[in-house]
Simulated assay, not measured.
Amino acid sequence: MTASDKAFTGSIPQMYDELLVPLIFTPYAQDLARRIKTLRPRDVLETAAGTGVVTRALDAELPPEVRITATDLNEPMLAQAKTHLTDARRVAFQQADALALPFADASFDVVACQFGVMFLPDRVKGYAEARRVLRPGGRFVFNVWDRIEDNEFAHVVHETLQRVFPDNPPQFFTRTPHGYFDPLKIRADLSDAGFSDIVIEPLPHRSRAPSAREPAVAYCQGTPMRGEIEARGAPDLTTVTEAAANALRQRFGSGPVVGQIQSLVISAR
């Protein structure tokens, strides 16, 4: 992972929220919230909350007495998340580094993280921090993207970028979002951090958009991939986005598009 992989700045948080969240994140957020509800927690900590899709799902799913603390390293992403939950008094937002959580030991019953652990520079340390703030018997519930070949829109855009920039192709997708999917590695990292009773399961969904342009814009302009594209200078961001849209049209058609997405959902005690 590079420093630019965590650059959710400028217009990226808003575009991420408007395009990527409904495209790929919402069904997995709802899944995590339902799983967490069955654990009957009193206090839930969310790390890498981003623009708050899981936070909103937790607020909708959990009983009103449950306290939710949503954190992210990136303040612009949290600012976007807050716009959706201005009246949710039981939700507290706080900027925080998942590698050094500003909470006391044994403060939470559940720690949740949606598609965030791939961005941690030291995953075992991040997992150990999650374990530290969990109460005895508490659970860490999170998900990661499966391999890029099982996530069709992302795969088509990635392959397009390899063709557009043959001498220096951007690798953000395979390096970070889709770079941590080996169940054996995930299990080993969690074990090294002190977790047990580890369950890992694949969860496929179908991603839908009104046209091929929406996923092209979402991936090229609503993720840190944007920085990699812009750093290369030519062709420019608009041209690259249109190339991605054309590739998606060729694969999925010129009308509404549907593609496979798949994650791994992990729970550990």
Rank of each mutant, 00 (worst) to 15 (best):
residue 1 M to P: 11
residue 3 A to T: 14
residue 4 S to T: 11
residue 8 F to P: 00
residue 8 F to C: 10
residue 9 T to I: 13
residue 12 I to Q: 07
residue 13 P to I: 03
residue 16 Y to I: 11
residue 16 Y to G: 08
residue 16 Y to N: 10
residue 22 P to N: 13
residue 25 F to P: 00
residue 28 Y to S: 08
residue 29 A to P: 03
residue 29 A to S: 15
residue 31 D to G: 05
residue 32 L to S: 02
residue 34 R to P: 05
residue 35 R to F: 00
residue 46 E to G: 08
residue 46 E to I: 09
residue 48 A to K: 01
residue 54 V to I: 04
residue 54 V to Y: 00
residue 57 A to W: 06
residue 59 D to N: 10
residue 59 D to K: 02
residue 62 L to H: 06
residue 64 P to E: 09
residue 65 E to S: 10
residue 68 I to Y: 01
residue 70 A to K: 00
residue 71 T to N: 01
residue 77 M to T: 03
residue 78 L to W: 06
residue 78 L to V: 04
residue 81 A to C: 03
residue 82 K to I: 12
residue 82 K to G: 03
residue 83 T to M: 09
residue 84 H to I: 02
residue 87 D to Y: 05
residue 88 A to E: 11
residue 89 R to W: 07
residue 93 F to K: 05
residue 94 Q to K: 12
residue 94 Q to P: 01
residue 101 L to F: 06
residue 101 L to M: 08
residue 103 F to A: 03
residue 107 S to L: 01
residue 107 S to P: 14
residue 108 F to S: 06
residue 110 V to K: 04
residue 110 V to A: 00
residue 112 A to N: 05
residue 114 Q to G: 11
residue 115 F to M: 13
residue 115 F to D: 06
residue 116 G to K: 11
residue 123 R to I: 14
residue 123 R to E: 10
residue 124 V to G: 08
residue 128 A to V: 05
residue 133 V to F: 05
residue 139 R to G: 07
residue 142 F to S: 00
residue 144 V to C: 10
residue 145 W to K: 04
residue 147 R to D: 14
residue 149 E to S: 14
residue 152 E to R: 01
residue 153 F to N: 06
residue 153 F to E: 01
residue 158 H to E: 02
residue 162 Q to E: 14
residue 167 D to M: 04
residue 170 P to K: 02
residue 171 Q to E: 05
residue 174 T to Q: 04
residue 176 T to P: 00
residue 177 P to T: 15
residue 178 H to M: 15
residue 180 Y to I: 13
residue 180 Y to A: 07
residue 183 P to G: 06
residue 187 R to L: 03
residue 188 A to D: 15
residue 191 S to D: 12
residue 194 G to V: 08
residue 200 I to T: 02
residue 201 E to K: 13
residue 204 P to Q: 08
residue 205 H to V: 15
residue 216 A to S: 11
residue 217 V to T: 15
residue 218 A to T: 14
residue 221 Q to M: 14
residue 221 Q to A: 12
residue 229 I to S: 04
residue 231 A to Q: 10
residue 235 P to I: 06
residue 237 L to I: 12
residue 238 T to L: 13
residue 239 T to I: 08
residue 240 V to D: 04
residue 240 V to L: 15
residue 240 V to K: 01
residue 241 T to G: 00
residue 241 T to L: 09
residue 247 A to Y: 04
residue 254 S to D: 14
residue 256 P to S: 10
residue 258 V to I: 13
residue 259 G to K: 07
residue 262 Q to K: 15
residue 262 Q to C: 12
residue 269 R to Y: 07
